[in-house]
Simulated scan of single mutants.
Amino acid sequence: MNKVKIRTVKRAIRGDQQAFSQLVLGQADYLTRTGHLYLSRDVDVQDAISETTLIALHSISQLQKPALFRTWLTRILIRQCYRRYSEQAHEVCDLADLPEMPTNLANVSVDEKLDLLGGLKRLNDGYRQVLLMFYYNGLSIHEISDLIGMPENTVKSHLKRGKSQLKTWLGGDYFEK
């Protein structure tokens, strides 16, 4: 994070709401993309972002390392997405609301994509989160490690185990590059 942004974060920590607004607006596209990794409906993503913004506004004074603002904000968003995801786990999935697949899956049939999304839903939260961040958001292992506070080797293990479970359940190599 550059010095100007760190100064803006420090101003926001001291209670400057305009600085906070500037920071959150600067992260809007990133928050929306990240929200879509966890939630399929736009309205749910926007609700999660709104709740994230309110929580962040009320608790920014507790942020101890201004350079980690984006990571801190992302963690709040992920918690909000998981909360909404668990509330809606019983709902029937509408095909029109499915998230866009990564470009390396462009040649995969619709049935295989549906199988993949069903398989991802069956994974435990840790494996699913890492797979989504790596394949859908294009984050590196190091970035995922920093973002969720998990050692890099654990991220690698989650990727390997999650892919292995998907291959076992689906019988295909959907994530092979």
Rank of each mutant, 00 (worst) to 15 (best):
M1A: 06
K3R: 09
V4P: 00
I6A: 09
V9K: 08
K10C: 13
R14M: 12
Q18F: 04
Q18L: 00
Q22W: 06
Q22K: 14
L23R: 10
G26E: 05
A28E: 07
A28K: 11
Y30N: 02
T34C: 02
T34I: 02
H36Q: 13
L37C: 14
L37F: 06
L39Q: 00
L39V: 11
S40K: 06
D42T: 10
Q46G: 06
Q46R: 10
A48Y: 10
I49C: 10
S50K: 13
E51H: 14
I60H: 01
Q62L: 15
Q64I: 02
L73R: 06
L73A: 04
T74W: 05
I76P: 00
I76D: 01
I76H: 00
L77Q: 00
Q80G: 03
C81I: 02
R83M: 14
R84K: 13
E87R: 08
A89Q: 09
A89I: 01
H90K: 11
C93L: 10
L95V: 11
L95R: 08
A96H: 04
M101A: 13
T103N: 13
V108Q: 00
V108G: 03
D111S: 14
D111W: 09
K113Y: 03
K113E: 04
D115Q: 07
G119R: 02
L120T: 05
Y127T: 12
Q129F: 05
L132C: 04
L132I: 14
F134R: 09
F134Q: 07
Y136P: 00
N137R: 06
L139I: 00
E143Q: 09
P151W: 06
E152V: 03
E152T: 05
N153S: 11
V155L: 09
V155T: 05
S157T: 03
R161H: 11
G162V: 15
G162Y: 04
G162T: 07
K163W: 03
S164Q: 13
Q165S: 08
W169P: 04
L170R: 02
L170Y: 14
G172S: 07
G172V: 15
Y174D: 05
E176I: 02
